[in-house]
Computed example of a mutant assay.
Amino acid sequence: MTTDTLKRNNLLGALCAFSAMVCVSFNDMAFKFLSGGYALHQIVFLRATIGLVVFAVVVMPLNGGLRVIRTRRPWAHLLRGCFVVCANMALFLGLAAMPLAEAVAITFISPLLIAVMSVIFLNETVGPRRWAAIIVGFAGVLVIVQPGTAAFQAASLLPALAALLYSSMHMVTRRIRATESAPTMSFYTMLSFAVASAAFGLVFGDGRFAGGMHPSLEFLLRAWGPIARGDVAIIVTLGALSVLSSLLVSQTYRLSEAAFAAPFEYVAMPLAIMWGVTVFGTWPAPNAWAGIALILGSGLYMLWRESIRGTPTPPTQRR
């Protein structure tokens, strides 16, 4: 692979990461908005089902029909599906009990973990200045969540768990990118959501374990019910965006260095603040602003270092 190709792939991957985070940010806002009236597995099932329909009607015809779902790595897709389903479930349960900006801030451990894990598992190179930026970004997360305060309530551990699982999912993506296309990975991601949420709904969908408990547990165990007319458009949009965001995320880590693309996910932070203010009427606390500045500053510095270096470090992982 030539230097120009590596540079182009990294830039395309960064654009995919940015666009994916716009979709994911709406997804987070919508799940928090809907968490007071529906069961988590019901929303996930409807989103996945709509997404599979959109995939079959729009994506499959443009990518060779049924050939797009053929895979040489079924067990890798199963592992990746487990990671992404558990990561999303953990995050959505955290969102039910926490302010949106705080929950998203905790998940910013994920881009830092992706960069670190890319060194450990993929043999990619992260220079000392980028390591320093990663440390600063992690410090920003700590400033926002304030260890030892109310931010470290039990629910705050759920976005942290989501971050770890999300990072692990991206490591699997990097391992299978040579043989599996973005549409193929997107299909098996949505299929994983549909199967897992349907199974959970069969066991807990009658709501017999719900009633007067923690918001996260109530969201998890609430009974399935009819969808209000005003919420139909939100759920349909979630389904369509699930296809787009899954394709974009898969494409991000197929194209570019994990350590290069990860900082572009920081766009989710200002978007979370915007949704918090406009939809939920919540502003970040002063300490949160300081932490956000550290996180965004570290990400911008990493991007600046890439521009100074001229060409990103080629990935050296084994295929």
Rank of each mutant, 00 (worst) to 15 (best):
M1S: 13
T3F: 11
D4E: 15
L6N: 14
K7S: 14
R8I: 11
G13Y: 03
L15S: 10
A17L: 10
A17G: 06
F18E: 01
S19L: 15
A20M: 15
S25R: 00
F26H: 02
A30F: 06
A30E: 05
K32C: 09
S35D: 07
G36C: 06
G37W: 03
Q42I: 06
Q42G: 04
L46F: 12
A48L: 11
V54H: 07
V58S: 06
L62M: 14
G64A: 04
G65Q: 05
G65D: 07
L66Y: 09
R70D: 02
R80L: 08
C82N: 11
M89H: 05
F92Q: 05
G94Q: 05
V116G: 04
S118Q: 10
S118V: 04
S118H: 07
S118T: 13
N123A: 12
V126P: 02
R130K: 13
V136S: 04
G137C: 00
A139R: 02
A139N: 02
G140T: 01
V141Q: 03
V143Y: 07
A150Y: 07
Q153R: 14
Q153T: 15
S156N: 09
A163P: 02
L165N: 03
S167M: 09
S168N: 01
H170P: 02
V172H: 03
V172T: 11
T173W: 01
R175L: 13
T184P: 01
F187A: 05
L191A: 14
S192M: 13
S192Q: 07
A194M: 15
A199H: 03
A199S: 11
F200C: 13
F200L: 15
G201F: 03
V203H: 09
G205E: 01
A210M: 05
A210S: 15
A210K: 09
M213R: 10
H214Y: 09
P215A: 07
L217R: 08
L217Y: 12
A223S: 12
A223R: 09
W224H: 08
V232N: 08
A233L: 14
I235F: 08
G239A: 04
V243C: 10
L244H: 07
S246R: 03
L248Y: 10
L248H: 05
A259D: 01
A259Q: 00
F260A: 02
A261L: 07
P263D: 00
F264G: 00
I273V: 15
M274C: 14
V277C: 09
F280K: 12
T282K: 12
A285F: 11
N287H: 15
N287A: 15
A288G: 15
G291A: 08
M302G: 15
G310S: 10
G310A: 09
T311R: 14
P312E: 04
P315G: 10
Q317A: 14
Q317F: 13
